[in-house]
């Protein structure tokens, strides 16, 4: 009882919030909240197997799959608030409200009768009882569903497959291409400079320094630069005094420790 009345508002709020947030990642996380609450509700309703399956399969696998695709497609992409189709939002809310009210009213009038409860059905454990029914009464559906899963997996592979239009390029081909690009456009044939050369930290957020003392823009991930978390290497480089103090302190503590 308490569980239900605690979780129900949370679920509803989370679901509503899922509608209003702008970033897709936030929507996914709110959906996770809803799913986990649902799992708890299943547990409350004497369905421990499904409680576990909901968390493992639904939240753990399916939702994570969603998150992967969100990352791949564009985690930055956010829906603009402005609605492009005239009247869509208004009518969607109105009709949605109408639908909801009718559904709730209708459902409320349904007389379910006395709740029989699953004490008798779960006699012998929920999982064995489910297994009993699954492999006798519903075995055909079970087999069909397994075929469906295989088909889905194959389908995903087919859809995600990228056709190769030319022969696979070997390492020699790639090297030759780099030389040609250098000859044509002056693009640097070597690898990108690693970060943190003459840096205090061997960290990805510190840019490498060019011979003239300026930061090399290619040594820092574009994302970090966009986020603005890049440390200013020249500042670090000029703070020599602090650097030498640090080194000495480190050496002293090391000796003291021996």
């Amino acid at each position: 009882m308490i569980g239900f009345w605690l979780l129900a508002p949370v679920m509803v709020l989370a679901a509503l919030a899922m509608l209003f947030v702008r970033k897709a990642v936030h929507s996914a996380l709110l959906l996770a909240v809803v799913m986990i609450s649902l799992a708890v509700l299943y547990a409350i309703q004497d369905a421990p197997f499904l409680f576990a399956v909901q968390i493992i399969v639904y939240t753990g696998a399916i939702l994570m799959l969603f998150l992967f695709v969100v990352m791949l497609v564009g985690v930055d992409a956010s829906d603009s608030v402005v609605e492009t189709i005239r009247g869509q939002r208004l009518f969607a809310i109105l009709i949605g409200l109408l639908f909801g009210v009718i559904l709730v009213l209708g459902v409320a009038q349904v007389s379910v009768g006395t709740v029989t409860g699953l004490a008798a059905a779960n006699d012998g454990g929920n999982v064995p009882e489910i297994a009993k029914i699954l492999f006798t009464k519903y075995v055909f559906a079970f087999e069909t569903t397994s075929a469906l899963l295989i088909t889905a997996a194959v389908g995903a592979m087919v859809l995600a497959h990228r056709e190769r239009f030319g022969p696979k390029q070997t390492q020699a081909d790639l090297a030759a291409q780099r030389m040609r690009d250098y000859a044509a456009t002056g693009k640097h044939p070597g690898p990108l400079p690693p970060p943190g050369v003459f840096a205090r930290h061997n960290a990805v957020d510190t840019p490498a320094l060019l011979p003239d003392g300026s930061a090399a823009p290619e040594s820092i991930s574009r994302v970090l630069a966009a986020r603005g978390t890049v440390k200013n290497a020249p500042e670090l480089a000029t703070d020599v005094a602090r650097l030498t103090d640090d080194v000495e302190d480190a050496g002293d503590s090391e000796e003291a420790g021996r």
Binding site: Q45, Y58, T116, G117, L118, E129, I133, Y138, A152
Partner: peptide
């Protein structure tokens, strides 16, 4: 739970499986 048998839970199970395939 209301009807006292596990058919509903089996159905829910199948829904989950099919949802997984669909999401993929």
């Amino acid at each position: 739970r209301a009807n006292g048998n596990l058919d509903g839970q089996i159905a829910a199970f199948f829904v989950m499986v099919v949802a997984a395939a669909e999401v993929v």
